[in-house]
């Protein structure tokens, strides 16, 4: 495996559709819950330990070779909001397209054939990491980092937040991001023997509720 493959997959410019999503930050900005760097940090910390942890463990499990169908069902069960489920599958299809073009392999082709409507993005992320020769912990790191990197970038656009403040937030969250990724890998290994119920199911009800309101609202900049 190569370190550069990890950088490529983790790069926000990797063309897999993430740029159109704010990870709930737009709804939080509109509701006045994110107003500055400090509140962005709190928002991101909450997201990291809930949907970030869930995504990271799904990604790690997929990278370990767990069954994508079972992981997808587990992701559904952990995502109450229909809007977020639809967005996760759409992003999964987009990432699979980019992944297959970037690291062509039979396993990804099979995934696309088996699930023409797509599977949740973290599951694809794990499979793509595997195709790129990366480790489960790499997949978990990508997912955990993405769970905070997306909202931070979006907030720079939404609030005109100083971009250096946003990168500072991400740097302060780095140790917690590492811990979440490590926990996700442990859970993923457990799930290999215990089944997908062993994966974390930490949820953030406000993220789910505001995602529904956001999807129904007009004049938004980001899809989620």
């Amino acid at each position: 495996m190569t370190r550069a493959a990890l950088l490529l997959l983790a790069d926000g410019r990797f063309p897999a559709g993430g740029h159109a999503h704010s990870g709930g930050a737009e709804a939080a900005v509109r509701a006045g819950r994110i107003t500055d760097a400090a509140s962005l940090e709190e928002f991101c910390r909450g997201r990291l330990h809930t949907s970030g942890l869930v995504a990271a463990s799904l990604a790690a499990a997929a990278a370990l070779g767990a069954d994508p169908g079972e992981l997808d069902a587990a992701a559904d069960a952990r995502t109450p909001s229909p809007a977020l489920r639809a967005a996760a599958r759409r992003l999964g299809r987009q990432l699979l397209r980019a992944g297959r073009a970037t690291w062509p392999c039979g396993e990804l082709d099979l995934l696309a054939r088996r699930f023409p409507k797509g599977v949740h993005q973290p599951v694809v992320l794990g499979a793509v990491a595997r195709a790129a020769g990366l480790e489960p912990s790499d997949a978990a790191h990508c997912a955990a980092y993405e769970s905070v990197g997306g909202p931070a970038t979006a907030t720079v656009r939404l609030l005109g937040l100083d971009p250096f403040d946003a990168t500072g937030v991400l740097a302060r969250l780095a140790p917690a991001t590492d811990r979440v990724a490590a926990r996700a890998v442990r859970a993923a290994r457990e799930a290999l023997t215990e089944g997908v119920d062993a994966l974390p199911a930490a949820s953030a009800p406000l993220l789910e509720i505001s995602a529904e309101a956001h999807a129904a609202g007009a004049g938004r900049l980001f899809a989620t």
């Binding site: 063309p15 897999a16 740029h19 159109a20 987009q94 397209r97 979006a154 938004r220 980001f222």
Partner: peptide, 16 residues
Amino acid sequence: ETGACPHTAIRDDISA
């Protein structure tokens, strides 16, 4: 939906 950046969606990341 373009996340405030049509040029990204039509050029840099055309997946959607």
